[in-house]
Simulated scan of single mutants.
Amino acid sequence: MRDTITTVTLNAAIDKTYFVPALVKGTVMRATEVLSMAGGKGVNVARVLHQLGHPDVVATGFAAGHNGRYLVDRIRESGIGADFVVANGESRLCLNFIDGVDDSSTEVLEPGPEVEAEHLAALKNKIGGLAERSAVVVLSGSLPRGAPPSLYAELIELVRAAGALPFLDASGAPLALGLSAMPAFIKPNEEEILKLLAGNGDGDLDLREGALALARQGIRNVVVTLGGEGAAAFVDGVAYRVAIPKLKAVNTVGCGDAFVAGYAYGSSRGWSAEACLRHAAAAGCANALSAVAGDVKKDDFDMLLPRISIGEWLK
């Protein structure tokens, strides 16, 4: 039985969170606290999987320059395997400013390095090898400069050919093109799925009909996250609605990544759709209680798990 879950972050980042008393444009602000950690959507997924107790997690993708070496070191220090392709330039910084007045979050994201044909070839070779020993390969986040929009579709086909389940969490053209390769799982939020439907000429469909249309294309797990309203899903043709408890969120950045981690955790074990959705929702909610992205405390997760409700998604 394959135990490894591999996460792919093509545009990994150092996530820095600044807590300021008030975010005021055009002024000098002094942070009261600064948190720094390895990030990017796939790295967040890997960290949450590790925190949930999955024994074998490997993070891969591109890492560049001093920032890239820092990323890899931090990932390994946290107990996660790191097997990245070295690219030119510098991996990006992603800055998140938490306003002490209203706890709102303002993000500034750098573009990251530009990859070339040799880096893309090395990445495909790396992912092919990792997929051969993985139960699930999670492909997450934006593409780096120089990568074709069809890259996720190519990687999904490669992962499936190696016998692993390809999960896709992306948006825009990489998501739209990736769907053609039939990933086993997608997780757009409400805004992303409505944009996707509009791009397909299906803008008149409601959320449920749109998710059903994607499921009918052959995607086994179609999950739409709805923020504080929980999630909705079609899994193997069955419609589900996920209700979550009301929370006083500390920081919602990374909740979607934690959700993906929880679902991958259950899927790698062959759990039912209800169990996967409950695990995923509890992880996403637990992340909201942490000050940093992609961080789930086990006590929070254990407290939230029995408070997740799974029902039928009615019209």
Rank of each mutant, 00 (worst) to 15 (best):
A164F: 15
L168H: 04
D169G: 01
D169N: 03
G172Q: 09
A173V: 14
A173N: 13
A173M: 14
P174F: 11
P174V: 12
P174G: 03
A176M: 11
L177M: 13
L179I: 08
S180G: 14
A181E: 03
A181K: 10
M182D: 11
P183F: 06
P183G: 07
A184Q: 10
F185M: 02
I186F: 13
I186W: 07
N189T: 05
N189F: 02
N189I: 04
E190M: 00
E191D: 12
I193T: 06
I193Q: 01
K195Q: 10
K195Y: 13
K195T: 10
L197R: 14
L197H: 09
A198N: 14
A198K: 15
G199H: 07
N200R: 15
G201D: 08
G201W: 09
D202T: 07
D202H: 15
G203N: 05
G203W: 06
G203H: 10
D204K: 12
L205Y: 03
D206E: 01
D206V: 09
L207Q: 04
L207S: 01
L207E: 05
R208F: 06
E209N: 08
E209W: 08
A211D: 01
A215N: 09
A215L: 09
R216L: 08
Q217P: 10
Q217T: 03
G218Q: 14
I219C: 09
R220T: 01
R220K: 00
N221Q: 04
N221D: 09
N221P: 07
V222E: 04
V224M: 11
T225M: 12
T225R: 05
G227Y: 07
G228R: 01
E229H: 02
E229M: 01
E229P: 00
G230K: 13
G230C: 14
A231E: 01
A231T: 04
A231Y: 08
F234M: 07
F234Y: 07
F234K: 13
F234D: 03
V235H: 02
D236Q: 04
G237R: 04
G237K: 00
Y240A: 07
R241D: 14
V242F: 00
V242P: 01
A243W: 13
P245V: 06
P245L: 08
K246Y: 00
V250N: 01
V253K: 09
G254F: 06
G254N: 00
C255G: 07
G256T: 02
D257K: 03
A258Y: 12
A258I: 12
A258F: 10
A258R: 07
F259Q: 09
A261N: 05
G262R: 07
Y263W: 14
A264T: 10
A264C: 07
A264V: 08
Y265M: 11
Y265V: 12
G266I: 05
G266P: 03
G266S: 04
S268N: 07
R269A: 05
G270D: 02
G270M: 02
W271M: 02
W271C: 01
S272W: 05
S272D: 08
A273H: 02
E274I: 12
A275I: 02
A275L: 00
A275N: 04
L277S: 07
A280S: 13
A280G: 11
A280T: 10
C285V: 15
C285D: 11
A286H: 09
A286K: 08
A286P: 12
N287D: 09
N287I: 03
A288M: 04
A288H: 06
L289Y: 03
L289Q: 02
A291I: 06
